[in-house]
């Protein structure tokens, strides 16, 4: 259990801190054409340092998910560039999106299988990843036999099985009850600290963003643009109901309302 999980991340580990992990430069994304033309993103630029936890915050239609899709390489920008600096990108979705015909372990194994890793090693790595998310011994459970929070943890383990240096999370805790969500914030923070992974975390929940992020990128809606960037200078570990978090959340919420209000006219 002493081998490092993400080989490539470890290799770059020493120099990584000052490094830029992700460079988004003047990115636009347009869907459709003519009257059905929708501009999801307009000239979005953002640099994310290696090991940084960045929250993308915005109301509906700000193109948060579109932006994640571009970073994960699921989609290509209409203009501008997305540079992941040779780092591997893993993705986690709101709905845990586990493959229902596989067990928890089977789901974690898929990315390993896709990279042609031998069976014995797959088993070992899967067990290690599942214990990282505190699901040791649950490898044989099927997704429908797990709770929502447990499914999201399997999904997190699966994202790490991609040896992700950059983890894109698309409202991963949006569908969970408050208690589970609170616990998973702690879990995610712990795993982030211990792995040094770079996180791009999409949410529409201001407090969640303040609870987790080093920086909060506030996006405006239709089209999505970077409206403002907040630095979160609150010591970790944070608590979602602490006064510091509430204070910054109030500021961010006011700014978010201002952005949303522009669409009311």
């Amino acid at each position: 259990m002493t081998t490092a999980l993400t080989g490539s991340a470890v290799d770059t580990g020493a120099a990584a801190q000052a490094d830029t992990a992700l460079r988004i430069d003047g990115v636009s994304r347009v869907f459709g054409a003519g009257p059905a033309r929708v501009q999801a993103l307009d000239d979005v630029s953002l640099e994310v340092r290696a090991g940084e936890f960045v929250c993308l915050l915005g109301a509906s239609g700000c193109g948060k998910s579109t932006l994640l899709g571009l970073v994960a390489g699921l989609d290509a920008p209409s203009a501008g560039t997305v540079d992941t600096t040779g780092r591997r990108v893993g993705m986690m979705f709101q709905d845990s999106a586990l493959l229902p015909w596989l067990t928890a372990g089977g789901n974690v194994e898929v990315p390993l299988k896709l990279r042609g890793i031998r069976k014995a090693e797959r088993r070992e790595r899967t067990e290690r990843l599942l214990s990282m998310v505190r699901l040791a011994g649950m490898a044989d459970r099927r997704p429908h036999e797990l709770s929502g929070g447990m499914r999201q943890r399997v999904s997190l383990a699966r994202a790490f099985a991609q040896e992700a240096d950059i983890l894109c999370m698309d409202e991963p805790f949006g569908a969970l009850d408050a208690m589970t969500r609170d616990l998973l914030h702690d879990e995610l923070e712990r795993i982030w600290r211990e792995t040094g992974v770079t996180v791009l975390f999409v949410t529409h929940d201001v407090r969640e963003a303040v609870r987790l992020g080093d920086r909060i990128v506030l996006l405006s809606s239709r089209p999505g643009r970077v409206a403002e960037i907040f630095d979160v200078d609150i010591d970790r570990p944070r608590r979602i109901d602490s006064a510091h978090v509430a204070e910054l959340a109030t500021t961010v919420t006011a700014r978010l309302r201002e952005e949303v209000g522009r669409h009311g006219h």
Binding site: A4, V10, D186, E194
Partner: peptide, 28 residues
Amino acid sequence: MATEIDVPTRAHERPDLAKARPGDAPEV
């Protein structure tokens, strides 16, 4: 869950994932 965790460490100091196991935050 105000657990006793160290000041955040970054990538250059990251310990092995073996440590990313239950035990360091018993309440959670």
